[in-house]
Computed example of a mutant assay.
Amino acid sequence: MKSILYTLLLFAITVNAQTATKEQIISELPEIEITEGINLHIISPEPIQYVDLSTAQLTGDLPTTNIARIKITDEQKSDEKVKKVNHSAFLDRDKIGIITVMGQSFIAQYKAVYRNSENLNTVTNIHIQAEAMQPIEFDKMIFSNLELRKFAVDIIQKKSENNPIRQEKDFNLSFQLNNVYVISDYIFLDMTFKNNSNLSYDIEALKFSIEDKKIHKATNNQSIEMMPLFQLNPQKHFKKNFRNIYVFKKFTYPNSKVMMIRLIEEQLSGRTIEMKVNYSDILKADTF
């Protein structure tokens, strides 16, 4: 256990030590080819925060959080100055533009070069490779979704479902908190849902909130909803068993309050089950 934690901390320190982004010059940028009338999809291993296209010859959008879609600007949409020159001159092989993609923990830059549409080997998508990524320097240790996923997968591989910290049973359902883990400023909740009925379960919502332990009057109840930063599986349906990891930024709450977790079924006559988690359970969080 300690050796694993030491390895993770050493990795984090190494990453932080290498976050000074070196200077980049255009001639050293990796090239990607782009063709008129064909979209180029740049696929990132983590959510894209920002994309810059250095010239009007390129246009694009973000159809999903991990994909940047880029194409050569249509001739009729180029500005008036460009319209006065031949379109082939507009598509200067060496000056078509620089594409910059910024993820949560890296920046990647490419030099876009023109490829004739008659060539049948046109590339339509590329994955950002590790060698193209330059780490971004942060003031605090911040993990990207890709890193959080790696940690969550490590937790899933542990055999920790037999002795849960908390467990609730109702409607032939079993809802358990297997364990709580912490690394840096992140809290990982390892949870398992078991359905002992023959009726499959459609999840409408899994809600997390901080609430008063004792409610003297309904109007005095203060509920603060909490949203996970990341969850390993976005699954909304399960027949028998479903295990998932939910990640939160570090939080605290007094002994007079509890974390309330509610599993809510989709149908009108849905089966709802609740679990109360004391702060002492969070304080006993394990490392990994």
Rank of each mutant, 00 (worst) to 15 (best):
I136N: 00
N39T: 09
Q49M: 12
H87V: 11
K150V: 14
K140C: 08
Q157F: 03
T65Y: 10
N39P: 00
Q104E: 15
H127G: 08
T59Y: 03
H41V: 07
I155W: 02
G103T: 11
Q134T: 12
T59D: 07
R149A: 14
E36W: 14
M102R: 14
D61V: 01
T124D: 05
H41M: 14
Q57Y: 13
S88V: 04
M141E: 11
G97I: 07
L148H: 03
T59P: 00
K158M: 12
I126M: 00
F143C: 08
I128M: 02
K150C: 08
F143P: 06
S44L: 10
G97A: 03
N66W: 02
I98L: 10
H127L: 11
I67M: 08
Q104D: 13
L53Y: 01
L148V: 05
N119L: 13
K140H: 14
E46M: 08
D79W: 05
D94M: 07
V113F: 08
I136A: 00
Y110G: 03
D61W: 08
M133R: 13
I155F: 02
P63A: 11
T73D: 01
K111L: 13
Q49T: 15
A132N: 15
P47C: 02
Q57T: 09
S88M: 05
I48G: 06
A56N: 12
T64R: 07
Y110K: 05
M102H: 11
T64S: 15
D154V: 10
Y50D: 15
K150M: 13
N66S: 13
L62D: 06
T100Y: 07
I70F: 09
I128Y: 06
K140M: 13
Q129E: 12
L120W: 05
N121E: 13
L53N: 07
I38R: 15
N119V: 12
G103F: 01
P47T: 04
Q104K: 04
V51Y: 02
D61G: 06
H41A: 12
T55N: 07
Y114T: 04
T124V: 11
Q109H: 12
T35L: 01
I38A: 05
R115S: 05
K159M: 02
V113Q: 06
F143D: 10
N86R: 14
G97Y: 04
T64K: 07
D154H: 10
L62N: 03
N119R: 10
F106I: 00
I43C: 14
I107C: 09
K111G: 00
P45V: 01
S144Q: 06
E118W: 15
K159N: 13
T122G: 01
S117C: 06
N119C: 04
L146W: 04
Q104V: 04
I42P: 03
